[in-house]
Write a protein that binds this DNA or RNA. Structure first.
Length: 585
RNA sequence: GCUCCAGUAGCUCAGCCGGAUAGAGCAACUGCCUUCUAAGCAGUCGGUCGCAGGUUCGAGUCCUGCCUGGGGCGCCA
C-alpha cells in the first residue's frame, strides 16, 4: 500500500499544478488512511490547508482539484465531503491485483529497504553476577522486536548486549568468590552458582559490614584493572557463570544477541579522555576531568559537568558510553545506533550524545537514538515486586506465565472433553505464556509505564496474544478440515474481492508494509500490535460471515487464498514481535 | 530549585505532519453454536481528552501558565 500512496501522491501533485499553477508543485497532498471506512480507503486533506493561500473556499478547491485528477487504475472517482475532504476508494481490480502479488511473494510484498542502514540495536544489558530481573524484560523484548523488524526490512543489524561486566563492584564479587568458593579457581566446573542473586547479596553484605573485606575488595579492583592473571581468572569465571544463566532466559525468549560488555571498551577509555582533551572540551574541575554541558544546569543555574574521569583516575559509565559511541561510528561504521533503555536514562543519553557530537564523533549521516520505555508496575501501580517485596526474577516471571497458560489450557481441555499429549500441552502453554508476556509489553506505547498483570495478558479475549494466536489457529483449522495445502492453491487462481467483508479484509492485508515502515522509523512496536489485532478482528468477522469450505468455486479458492494471506501476515507479524505461533491450541 | 515523561470511558490503553460525530479491549447488560474450534461474532451502556488561557478555517494533538503522579539532577550504571 506504500507504493500505492506514493503513486497517488504523484497524481495529486500533478493535479494541483494543473488546477492552480506550478507554484503549488511542492504542496503535500496530505494523503492519509481514511479516518472512517464510510469515507473510503484514503483521504486527502490538502484542500483545507490551501484556503488562505488560494483565497478560495476549501470545497471549491477540492472540486477544482478532482477535475484534474486521474487516479486510474487505482481509485474510483474521488468525492468531496464535509468541509473539503477528498475521499478515495480503491478499485476492486486494483485490490485483487495487489493481493495476487502479495500472495505470490514470500515476503508478502513487503519491499526491502532501498538504502539498507548499518544499524546497532543496544538492548537487554543485564549485569554480570546478578540475575536478570523484571527490569530487563522490556529492554529485551522491545529491543529484540525492533531488531527483527529492521532485519526483515533488509537493514544490516548488529544486536549488542552491553552487559555490566566491569567496574568497582567486581572487587567485592571476586573477593567473595575467592574466600567462599576457593575450589572454583583451581578446579574446573567446581562452581555452581545456582543463585546469582544470593551470591551477589552475600558479597554486598560482607562489603557493607566488614571493613577488612572492603580493603581486600578495593585491592581486587586494582588487581583487575592492572590485569592480574589470577583476578582475571576469577572475573572470567563469574562472567561465564552469568552467561549460562542469561542464555537460559534468552533461549526461553528466543532472543539472539551478541555480547559486547563494558569491559570491551576498557582499553579505549584513556584515549577517549585524550580525544576530548584534544578537542578542547575537557576541563579539570574539583579534581575530576569533566566536560561542561550546554543546556544542562545544576541547582545554582551553572552548566552541569559530565564526569569523564573521576578524581583518582577512575572512569565511569559516561566514559564507557562515549567509547562505545566512538567505536560504533568509527569501527562498526554504524549509521544508526538505537539504545533501548528505561526513560530514566534520557538525561544521561542526551548528555553523552551531546559530548560525542561536540567531539566530532557523529558524522552527519549517522543518527543516535535513545528509545526510552516506562517502568513495569504491579497491579497496585507501584514498582513491580514479589509479595515479600523482592525484585522479581525474570526466570520466575516467565515460568509463572507458562504455568498459568498451562493451567488454563488444561482446564479448557477437560471442559471440552479433549485429550492431548503432554508434549502438545507444554508446547502450547509455552507459546501462549511467553507470547502473552511479550505481547502485553509490546502492545503498549513503550513510553508510558506499564502495569503487569498475568490475568490481563493471558485473557483469551481482547487485545492479547491468545486472541491473535487463536485467529491464526482458526485458519489452520480450515486447512485441516478441508485437507487444504495452502502452499499449493495454484498461482493461477484468482483472488476475488466481491463481498464488502472480503474487501475490508483485503484492505487490511494490504496495509502490512505500511505499518512495518512506520515502525521502522518511529520504533513504536505497539503500532504493529494494533495492526495485528485489527487484522485478527477483521478476519474473525470474515470467518463469521463468509463460509469458506462450503463456498462454490471459484469463490472457495479465492477465500482460501484470503485465509492463507491472513495467516501468513499474522505469522510474519507475530514473528517480528518475537512471538511464535502454534497450529492448534 | 532545575529538568524529562505521563494525565483520554468505572479499569487497562490507542489516537501515526493538527483534520470529519474522540477509538479499542476489559467490566456490566442483550442476542447468536444441526454450519470451517463460541479462545468467536453482533449490539447496548459509558468521555468537560488534568485545569485555564492562546495560536488556527479546524486542537486530545502545537504554545504559555498552573495542578497531580512518576523518573533524573558531580565523581553508581
Amino acid at each position: 500500500m506504500n507504493s500505492t500512496i506514493a503513486e497517488l501522491n504523484k497524481r495529486f501533485k500533478a493535479a494541483l499544478v494543473a488546477a492552480f499553477g506550478a507554484e503549488l508543485a511542492d504542496v503535500d497532498p496530505m494523503l492519509v488512511a481514511s479516518s472512517n471506512p464510510k469515507f473510503g480507503d484514503v483521504q486527502a486533506n490538502v484542500a483545507m490547508s490551501l484556503t488562505k493561500r488560494l483565497g478560495l473556499a476549501p470545497r471549491a478547491i477540492a472540486e477544482q482539484l478532482i477535475q484534474q485528477l486521474d487516479l486510474s487504475p487505482y481509485c474510483e472517482s474521488p468525492t468531496v465531503a464535509g468541509p473539503g475532504f477528498i475521499n478515495l476508494r480503491l478499485t476492486r481490480e486494483y485490490l485483487e491485483a495487489q493481493l495476487q502479488q502479495m500472495h505470490q511473494d514470500e515476503r508478502l510484498a513487503v519491499p526491502l529497504a532501498k538504502q539498507p542502514q548499518r544499524t546497532i540495536v543496544d538492548f537487554s544489558s543485564p549485569n554480570i553476577a546478578k540475575e536478570m530481573h523484571v527490569g530487563h524484560l522490556r529492554s529485551t523484548i522491545i529491543g529484540d522486536s525492533i531488531a527483527r523488524i529492521l532485519e526483515f526490512l533488509g537493514h544490516d543489524v548488529l544486536r549488542l548486549n552491553h552487559v555490566g561486566d566491569w567496574g568497582t563492584q567486581f572487587g567485592m564479587l571476586i573477593t567473595h568468590l575467592r574466600e567462599s568458593y576457593p575450589d572454583a579457581l583451581t578446579t574446573a566446573n567446581a562452581l555452581a552458582l545456582g543463585d546469582l542473586t544470593t551470591f551477589y547479596k552475600q558479597a554486598k553484605q560482607r562489603f557493607d559490614t566488614d571493613e577488612d573485606f572492603q580493603v581486600r575488595s578495593r585491592q581486587e579492583v586494582v588487581a583487575l584493572q592492572s590485569g592480574n592473571a589470577d583476578t582475571l581468572k576469577a572475573w572470567q569465571l563469574l562472567c561465564d557463570q552469568s552467561r549460562l544463566a542469561f542464555q537460559e532466559i534468552y533461549d526461553l525468549l528466543d532472543v539472539r544477541i551478541q555480547e559486547r560488555g563494558e569491559s570491551f571498551y576498557n582499553p579505549l577509555l584513556s584515549s577517549v579522555v585524550e580525544d576530548l582533551a584534544q578537542a578542547e572540551l575537557l576541563v579539570e574541575d574539583q579534581g575530576a576531568k569533566v566536560v561542561f554541558l550546554e543546556g544542562f544546569t545544576n541547582k545554582e543555574g551553572k552548566p552541569l559537568p559530565l564526569i569523564i574521569q573521576k578524581t583518582g583516575g577512575g572512569y565511569n559509565y559516561a566514559t564507557t558510553d562515549l567509547a562505545a559511541i566512538r567505536y560504533r561510528t568509527q569501527q562498526d561504521q554504524a549509521e544508526r545506533v538505537i539504545y533501548i533503555t528505561d526513560a530514566g536514562q534520557a538525561n544521561h543519553f542526551a548528555q553523552v550524545f551531546q559530548v560525542a557530537a561536540r567531539a566530532g564523533w557523529i558524522p552527519a549521516h549517522v543518527e543516535l537514538e535513545h528509545v526510552p520505555f516506562g517502568v513495569v508496575q504491579g497491579e497496585d501501580g507501584k514498582k513491580f515486586k514479589t509479595r515479600s517485596g523482592e525484585t522479581v526474577r525474570l526466570k520466575d516471571l516467565l515460568e509463572e506465565a507458562i504455568a498459568r497458560a498451562y493451567a488454563d489450557l488444561d482446564a479448557r481441555l477437560i471442559a471440552e472433553n479433549r485429550s492431548e499429549p503432554e508434549e502438545f500441552k507444554t508446547q502450547v502453554a509455552t507459546a501462549v505464556g511467553i507470547g502473552a508476556v511479550k505481547y502485553a509489553d509490546l502492545s503498549q506505547n513503550r513510553t508510558s509505564n506499564y502495569i503487569f498483570s498475568y490475568d490481563k495478558m493471558l485473557a483469551l479475549q481482547g487485545n492479547t496474544a491468545p486472541y491473535m494466536l487463536y485467529a491464526y489457529v482458526r485458519v489452520q483449522g480450515i486447512s485441516r478440515k478441508g485437507s487444504i495445502d495452502f502452499a499449493n492453491l495454484g498461482a493461477d487462481r484468482a483472488i476475488l474481492v466481491q463481498d464488502e467483508m472480503e474487501r475490508t479484509l483485503a484492505v487490511a492485508l494490504l496495509q502490512f508494509d505500511e505499518v512495518l515502515n512506520t515502525v521502522a522509523v518511529d520504533l513504536y512496536p505497539n503500532r504493529l500490535c494494533q495492526y495485528l489485532f485489527e487484522l485478527s478482528q477483521t478476519f474473525n468477522q470474515f470467518y463469521d460471515r463468509c463460509p469458506v469450505l462450503q463456498a462454490e468455486e471459484p469463490l472457495r479458492t479465492s477465500r482460501l487464498m484470503l485465509c492463507d494471506l491472513t495467516a501468513r501476515t499474522l505469522k510474519q507479524g507475530l514473528t517480528l514481535l518475537g512471538i511464535s505461533t502454534v497450529e492448534r491450541m
